[in-house]
Design a protein around this nucleic acid. Structure first.
Lengths: 339, 339
DNA sequence: TGGACGAATGAAAGCGCTTGCAGCGAGGCT
DNA sequence: AGCCTCGCTGCAAGCGCTTTCATTCGTCCA
């Protein structure tokens, strides 16, 4: 099957017996041409199976109708949900999503962002605030608008749509304190290049501090966000520094892993141990026991990132920071501290 | 902050004191220019923070280094895993993923595919074999190579990378038959425009038929792929036509929902009821009880779709159909039929 | 009836890059 | 010494579209 070259606009114009410019206008800005002509052009286009050539259009208009997103691995359910919402919202406005992912590796993130910028995205969605300074430089120079999702900039300087992780974490930890827990452990995500993970851990520390408690180093592990890592982390904690009654996890995946490890060891949750997650992924509600967590509206974040971006591209004014409400979801995995 | 216009290749050329063509070659095909010149061009490009203009390049080369994927909602973990693998693999070869999703709606899929084609993707990845004939027409006319992921074309006509859903489903159902089950129910996905869902259900029917059994209409429900729908489906089945001892679910999300509904009703799994899923998502292993399912290597499918596509673009020969092994994973949610 | 105006169309100049072709020395060969 | 070859570079023609500006023609009003 030979790849026959696609019809160009010039072919459509010829078939319709009009000039190139008229054909272009007939398709792009219909009220500029006479209805009769417009119909002829439409017909010719349909007959030839004409598909506009996006690169040529982008070159001429300096718009690609394409938005880029540089995300952490989208097999994490929260990023999957956000990606889905983002793509869906963009598609409904006739924009398309250019997706790049990175494994929390700043070098890879920079490279991915550069690749998207080179592809001519009209806007860029990034996750969180921690980025390579070179990335910020590149963004500034390119002049491409960007949204930082998930976090909120306390300084209000960056365009963000996200939640207050630290505060939410304070509230969650407070819930455990209220239940009488005093000896805590934490299974955190990697905090190095991740402001969300850092803020969540900081929130826990802050809540504890306000009760004169602290999180000893041997009761904290930082690890990758996955069920398997959560399980392993809890095992390590239990071997290294047992005696805690509550585990605060960096997200629900880690918490579900922790739950599973408890089950394997016959530790009854929440009787012997309370476990808390973060994010409220779909599986949190059906875990056994159902997971106490903080609801983060991941899909809303994705949708709003798209909406805000498109509004900005349309020249509308958009508040630089949009903070979404989070909610403490108390289920069955947390309970009174054992006596 | 005024969006200063980015440096063009002409600016780089001027700064380096060479012609446009030399600058172009220095960056694209370094061995064509003298080392000294190349260094000057590189330096000038770096100094100006030059970012190539993808649309212009695409226009000139008829290549966008962009692959499109039209996926069902990527908040389904298997599509998330595949998307992740796909994006990752593409990025490693300096390609980028243009992602569009649709809610199992053929019209939306067609529109999404058209949008990607207009954006000039070099290749397209679709899911399954059931597509609007108009889509196939468009693909043929555009000459853009495409891969159908998840399914395998028995006719070997289409380029596919996937698994044999029907056979896997036969095997899974056989496992339940071996455990002595004779009264079955099925919570299937929507089969209308979904050959995978259809094949899975057909496989169950086939296995039953080989034992002279069948799946009465009132013991089958078709629904959306989600935990909530799985729960509701099982409830409906239980109310409409109780008495079955095994439920075969269209995927793990549905199965986990079914599991949850059983737990709520105090139906002991697997003592009173066996539940089987499909896909082997991460959560299947940590569900309570752990889910018996069929392992589908979703990430491999994504990765291979990318590899195959890039190989084809490079002119290499690629077997038209690549069938991946599936594996029956027996865990705790299936057991001997109650007496 | 003439002039002004507006609607509809066309001609042509880019958008920023790649690439075929040609030019130009320098060096090797006969 | 003359010719050819070869490595390097530059010129210029597109790639397929949008958009400005000019042109034409019909209409309306004075």
């Amino acid at each position: 099957m030979k790849a026959k070259v696609n019809a160009r606009l010039a072919d459509v114009a010829r078939a319709a017996g009009v000039s190139l410019s008229t054909a272009s206008r007939a398709l792009a800005d219909p009220q500029l041409v006479h209805e009769r002509t417009r119909a002829r052009v439409r017909e010719a286009a349909a007959m030839l199976g004409y598909l506009p050539h996006g690169a040529a259009r982008a070159l001429a208009t300096r718009r690609s109708r394409t938005i880029g997103a540089v995300f952490p691995p989208v097999d994490n359910p929260i990023f999957a949900a956000a990606t889905q919402a983002l793509a869906h919202e963009l598609a409904s406005r006739n924009y398309t999503l250019l997706l790049a992912t990175h494994e929390y590796d700043p070098g890879a993130e920079l490279a991915a962002a550069r690749a998207l910028l080179e592809r001519g995205v009209d806007g860029l969605v990034l996750v969180g605030m921690d980025h390579d300074p070179e990335l910020y430089r590149m963004l500034a120079q390119s002049g491409v608008p960007y949204e930082l999702a998930w976090s909120v900039d306390p300084a209000g300087y960056q365009h963000c749509v996200g939640v207050a992780h630290r505060l939410a974490s304070v509230r969650l930890t407070q819930h455990l304190l209220d239940l009488g827990h005093r000896r805590f452990a934490a299974v955190a995500g990697r905090t190095a290049r991740n402001d969300r993970a850092r803020d969540r851990l900081a929130g826990t520390r802050e809540a504890l501090a306000s009760h004169g408690l602290e999180l000893p180093a041997e009761r904290v592990v930082e690890t990758e966000f996955s069920v398997g890592h959560g399980r392993r982390a809890l095992r390590d904690l239990l071997e290294r520094a047992p005696g805690f009654t509550a585990v605060v996890c960096g997200n629900d995946l880690l918490a579900i892993g922790a739950l599973h490890e408890c089950a394997r060891r016959g530790i009854a949750v929440p009787r012997d141990m309370s476990v808390a997650g973060f994010d409220d992924i779909e599986m949190a509600a059906v875990a056994t026991p159902a997971l106490t967590t903080v609801h983060v509206p991941a899909a809303d974040i994705g949708r709003l990132a798209a909406e805000r971006m498109l509004a900005r591209l349309a020249g509308e004014h958009v508040a630089s920071v949009e903070e979404l409400r989070v909610e403490l979801i108390v289920r069955e995995s947390t309970g009174r501290a054992p006596a």
